[in-house]
Computed example of a mutant assay.
Amino acid sequence: MSALDEFRETLSAANPPEGEDLALQAIWWAGRGNWTRAHECAQTNEGDPDCDWAHAWLHRKEGDLGNARYWYRRAGRPTPTGSLEQEWEEIATALLARPLTAAQRRKRT
């Protein structure tokens, strides 16, 4: 089972997996259909390229393409042309592939 598949399985829980950073929490909440919680997570760590990427995707999802393009630029990413689902998977996969922080390792053991 891939990390993305395992992450998708957590979407049935009430809260995101413990120890995940705000960018991954934003994508998790978006995966649950809670745009507001996802947006709060992404905005909390504004300036972090991963949060800015999630933030861009959220504005793209809501149809605010001008705002989305601003956040894609801040994240250092091109504005995608694929589907929203494809990009959600791309973001989640990239975030899950990052090395774990010490705090995340402790929470997962």
Score class of each variant (00 low, 15 high):
Glu40Ile: 14
Cys41Asn: 13
Cys41Ser: 13
Cys41Arg: 12
Ala42Trp: 04
Ala42Gly: 06
Ala42Cys: 11
Gln43Val: 08
Thr44Ile: 09
Glu46Asn: 14
Glu46Pro: 01
Glu46Asp: 11
Glu46His: 14
Asp48Gly: 03
Pro49Tyr: 13
Pro49Val: 04
Asp50Gln: 15
Cys51Gln: 05
Trp53Ala: 15
Ala54Trp: 00
Ala56Tyr: 06
Ala56Val: 07
Ala56Asn: 00
Ala56Glu: 00
Trp57Arg: 11
Leu58Arg: 02
His59Pro: 07
Lys61Asn: 11
Glu62Met: 11
Asp64Ala: 06
Leu65Ala: 05
Asn67Gly: 05
Ala68Ile: 09
Arg69Gly: 10
Arg69Asn: 10
Tyr70Ile: 08
Trp71Cys: 09
Arg73Trp: 01
Arg73Asn: 13
Arg74Thr: 01
Arg74His: 01
Ala75Phe: 10
Gly76Met: 03
Arg77Phe: 02
Pro78Trp: 04
Thr79Ala: 03
Pro80Met: 01
Thr81Ile: 09
Gly82Val: 12
Gly82Ser: 14
Leu84Glu: 04
Glu85Met: 07
Glu85Lys: 13
Glu87Cys: 06
Trp88Pro: 00
Glu89Tyr: 08
Glu89Gly: 07
Glu90Asn: 13
Ile91Asp: 00
Ala92Trp: 09
Thr93Cys: 06
Thr93Lys: 06
Thr93Val: 09
Leu95Lys: 06
Leu95Tyr: 09
Ala97Lys: 05
Ala97Met: 06
Pro99Arg: 14
Leu100Thr: 03
Leu100Gln: 13
Thr101Glu: 12
Thr101Cys: 05
Ala102Met: 12
Ala102His: 06
Ala102Glu: 15
Gln104Trp: 03
Gln104Asp: 14
Arg105Lys: 15
Arg106Gly: 01
Lys107Ile: 10
Lys107Pro: 03
Arg108Phe: 12
Arg108Thr: 06
